[in-house]
């Protein structure tokens, strides 16, 4: 299982496993595209279980941000550790996602 998918207040919550990297990201990307096509336009990435994010994972998040923005939605992040945050910031992507400390706040931001 590379990620878990939940729903909270009409928002799709994606909870990746320990790593969102070149090995796990393609499957998460496919699953997300399917769900976004089916109408999900607000997505939270909950990184509470994740300690590693690579550019392959960032790519999936960016694809989701682009796809949901088209439908007036958006993507938020929560539970990111310092390493995950660092990768997002080094790529200049912190402005693309709404950053929140916890899941409830992230859901409210969208």
């Amino acid at each position: 299982m590379t990620a878990e998918y939940l729903e909270q207040d009409g928002v799709l919550v994606v909870q990746p496993g320990k790593r969102l990297d070149t090995t796990t990201a393609p499957e998460v990307g496919r699953e997300l595209s399917t769900r976004i096509e089916a109408g999900a336009n607000r997505v939270v990435f909950n990184f509470q279980n994740t300690d590693y994010l690579s550019s392959a994972g960032l790519r999936v998040m960016m694809v989701a941000a682009k796809a949901t923005a088209k439908n007036g939605g958006g993507v938020a992040l929560c539970g990111a550790n310092t390493h995950v945050k660092q990768v997002v910031e080094l790529c200049g992507m912190e402005s693309l996602f709404k950053m929140a400390g916890n899941l409830d706040k992230a859901v409210k931001l969208l």
Binding site: K66, A69, L90, C91, G92
Partner: peptide
């Protein structure tokens, strides 16, 4: 494209920058 608005950003190309 690192500071480009969302809709102008190509997907990928960030690995080497990292």
């Amino acid at each position: 494209h690192i500071d480009a608005p969302l809709e102008d950003r190509p997907i990928g190309g960030l690995g080497i920058h990292l």
